[in-house]
Design a protein around this nucleic acid. Structure first.
Length: 337
DNA sequence: AATCCGGGGAT
DNA sequence: ATCCCAGGATT
């Protein structure tokens, strides 16, 4: 990791030159849940307004607030200011070089305390931010959403276990750079990754599914039967959906809420034997407000009843016409198989 | 264990 | 539109 960092890490971030506890602390607070590119201009303006910790402590809440405006999570600014004043009163005007003392300050948790000690002083403490969580979850093949205590505990354990004996500031920065630029959330650069040979997720082909994403609210589940009906020329029967509701006005496969309704619809529109329909594997689809389990039924070599040809909302279409159409994604996916 | 805080980037 | 981001505090 250190070797990779020397060659490919970020060495020119504003808080790296010069490196001081105050600047590291300020950057760590600003970077909580906020991306580097967003923070940089705020960091520079803030530092110009309050060059050192006593300056910040002496400022009014309004002055601090003015510098923070636009960054979000405004409790961070209030805590920052409060911490500056505590440091002036209790720690001689600087941040304490002590884990528990840092942890006791408002706005500083376990990861930020570790980051300050490692970056400012080279002390041997682990961090666990979004980058480190992602790298460790993949490297060790740790499943489960990192927001749960059990998973977070494992990740902290690994973060602690990997700590080197020297170059802690560089190592800390290396992990974050690694996660931010190489082991990224989407499309990580596994092919050039120096950890590839030992990465469990890579070996198991699970890179894309780790770390496990946050579980969304449980969506209600509905099911629908969709009829994939082909005539003797291989044309597919499509039905225009009602003007309101899901996929309003789009062409889709004829749909029924259950098996009986499907048979009933089939017998009214098609001449053929519905009992010989082939059940294809379910196609799951997620909307914003519910999950739909599509149960496809396929029949081919059908002969349409006369009425079908006259119905404006019901049409037999060949492959080429289908491609030009604009089907709902799961329907297109189903027909493309 | 869940929820809140928040603007913004990436997809 | 959705997920996530150098998390921590509160409930």
């Amino acid at each position: 990791m250190l070797q990779w960092f020397d060659q490919a890490g970020r060495h020119d971030l504003p808080w790296q030159h010069p490196r001081s506890a105050y600047r590291v602390w300020l950057s760590e607070i600003m970077l909580q849940q906020t991306q580097v590119s967003t923070v940089i201009p705020y960091f520079e303006r803030f530092l110009a307004a309050f060059p050192n910790l006593p300056d910040l402590a002496a400022a009014t809440p309004d002055q601090v607030s003015a510098q923070w405006a636009g960054l979000g999570y405004y409790a961070r600014a209030r805590n920052l200011h409060a911490t500056a004043r505590i440091c002036v009163e209790q720690h001689g005007g600087d941040l304490p070089r002590d884990f528990d003392a840092l942890l006791a300050l408002p706005g500083i948790g376990r990861s930020t305390a570790g980051a300050i000690l490692a970056q400012a002083w080279g002390d041997r403490f682990a961090i666990l931010d979004g980058n480190v969580k992602r790298v460790l979850a993949r490297y060790h093949g740790i499943s489960g959403w990192p927001g749960t205590p059990a998973v977070e505990k494992q990740l902290w354990q690994q973060a602690q276990a990997h700590l080197p004996d020297s170059r802690l500031a560089d190592y800390t920065q290396a992990q974050m750079d690694f996660g931010a630029t190489l082991c990224t959330r989407a499309r990580p650069a596994c092919l050039v990754c120096v950890l590839q040979s030992d990465c469990v997720a890579f070996a198991q082909g699970r890179v894309d599914e780790l770390p496990t994403s946050k579980p969304g609210k449980a969506l209600p589940e509905r099911e629908a039967i969709m009829l994939w009906l082909e005539d003797e020329q291989g044309r597919v029967l499509l039905q225009r959906r009602p003007p309101t509701g899901i996929w309003a006005g789009l062409w889709s496969l004829p749909e029924a809420s259950d098996e009986a309704a499907a048979r009933d619809w089939f017998d009214r529109h098609i001449s053929g034997d519905f009992a010989s329909a082939q059940a294809l594997p379910d196609v799951p689809h997620v909307f914003s407000h519910y999950k739909l389990r599509i149960q496809p039924r396929r029949l081919s070599g059908l002969r349409p009843r006369d009425r079908v040809g006259e119905d404006n909302d019901l049409q037999w279409l060949d492959r080429e016409q289908l491609r030009a159409l604009g089907l709902p994604a799961p329907i297109r996916k189903l027909l493309d198989r």
